[in-house]
């Protein structure tokens, strides 16, 4: 499967968190993004799972706290 890119993850974030005016970057951190709290985090993860047909382990997702880490995690799951 093709590697995911920032544009894809940006769309995931915008859908999961209803981001409208926020300028999300690859380097954006958990504490900088509106509504990216524990509930927002699970919404991002579940959105990714639904789109990609994969399942993450809780341990895998708990400390992915930047957009870049989320992208890397998603790509690593696609390889396996």
């Amino acid at each position: 499967m093709k590697k995911l890119n920032f544009a894809y993850i940006k769309d995931v974030f915008e859908t999961a968190l209803d981001l409208e005016d926020f300028d999300l970057k690859l380097t954006s951190k958990f504490e900088e993004v509106p509504d990216w709290d524990s509930m927002g985090h699970m919404r991002i993860i579940l959105e990714l799972e639904e789109r990609l047909g994969i399942a993450f382990e809780i341990d895998e997702v708990i400390d992915v706290d930047t957009v870049e880490k989320i992208l890397q995690l998603a790509n690593s799951k696609l390889k396996t």
Binding site: D37, S38, M39, G40, H41, M42, I45, L46, A55, E57, I58, V61
Partner: peptide
């Protein structure tokens, strides 16, 4: 702050 519960309840 119960987001963890959402993940914990997942089937896998």
């Amino acid at each position: 702050n119960l987001g963890f519960l959402i993940g914990w309840l997942k089937r896998n």
